Amino acid sequence: MTVAGLLLAAGEGRRLGRPKALVDLDGRLLVERGLATLTAGGCTPVHVVLGAAHDEVLAAADLAGATVVLNEDWRAGLASSLRAGLAALPSQVEAVVVALVDQPLVTPEVVRRLRQAYDGGAVTAVATYGGLPRNPVLLARSTWADVAAQASGDTGARAFLRANPDLTTPVPCDDVGAPDDVDTPAELATLRRRLLTQS
């Protein structure tokens, strides 16, 4: 079974003050960390959707092994990046794990668990933490058209998943990852302190 990875990394990071893809965390750009997580989790191919400051990202980041998808419509929000990414995946891909660039505590094991859920027959699978659905998510190809149609603004697959709970398999990941995201300088500072105490 071919399960691809899709990293959404096109936003400008307005509240953060710079594109999240270019944020250095523990010596590595967030876009590089996200690519490595999907790759180590067994996804192939891996597509990275860029938008804001894409020239800077391409110049600064090591994205070897990834296919870069440019979302010219990135200002329209995350949904536009999800649509661009899904549309770019090759025909042999049967499912995709969609991850966000600003959640660096997601680990390869989270990705592997989503892939295992798909191997077990799941149509969609969602990583949960504390019982709550977050990211990443896995989407079988049969859902992509509906997911793309229902995505809007900064909401990606959530609308489809909420409308189709019977198709969604929750995958607990509390023990192997965390959904903390980086939206503000304060959140970034907190995350850096957390990583420092773990090292």
Rank of each mutant, 00 (worst) to 15 (best):
D154R: 11
E109N: 09
A21F: 05
K20M: 15
A64N: 04
L70D: 00
G77L: 11
Y118F: 15
R28Q: 15
R33E: 09
E72W: 08
G156A: 13
A36G: 06
A9E: 03
R141W: 03
G42Y: 01
L16H: 09
L86M: 09
G17P: 10
D146N: 04
A189P: 05
V3D: 01
L35S: 04
T190N: 11
T39S: 11
L8R: 01
M1N: 08
V171M: 07
A66R: 00
G11R: 04
V147R: 07
A52M: 03
L167V: 15
A53K: 00
A76E: 10
L196Y: 07
L196T: 13
L132P: 06
A9L: 03
L7M: 10
L114M: 08
D102Y: 03
A122C: 09
D180Y: 14
P104R: 04
R75C: 06
D73G: 04
R158W: 10
W144L: 04
A186N: 05
E94R: 10
R28E: 14
A99Q: 08
S152T: 12
P133E: 00
L29P: 00
V57H: 02
V68F: 10
A163Q: 14
V111T: 14
A95G: 10
Q92P: 07
E56R: 15
L22M: 09
L30W: 01
A151Q: 05
A117G: 02
A178Q: 11
R33P: 04
G77I: 09
R192V: 05
L100K: 05
P45H: 09
W144Q: 03
L195N: 03
A88T: 05
L50M: 04
V68T: 08
C43Y: 01
T44H: 11
A151N: 08
R15P: 06
R193E: 14
R194P: 03
L8Q: 08
D146H: 07
Q150F: 01
A59D: 10
T155A: 12
E187M: 15
A88W: 01
T190F: 11
A59S: 14
L196Q: 13
S199R: 15
G177W: 05
L22T: 10
G120S: 13
G77Q: 09
V176S: 11
R112F: 10
R194Q: 13
L35M: 14
A95L: 05
L30A: 00
S81C: 01
G153M: 03
C43I: 00
L35Q: 09
D146R: 12
L22A: 04
D183C: 14
S80M: 08
L86T: 07
L30F: 01
C43T: 06
L82S: 02
P165Q: 07
R141M: 05
L22P: 02
V182A: 08
C173Y: 08
A87Q: 12
V49W: 04
D146I: 01
A36R: 15
V171Q: 02
D154I: 10
L100N: 13
L191D: 01
S142I: 10
T124N: 00
G130D: 08
R141G: 06
D166M: 08
L29G: 02
V96E: 05
N135P: 00
A10K: 06
V96C: 11
L70Q: 01
G120Q: 13
R112N: 08
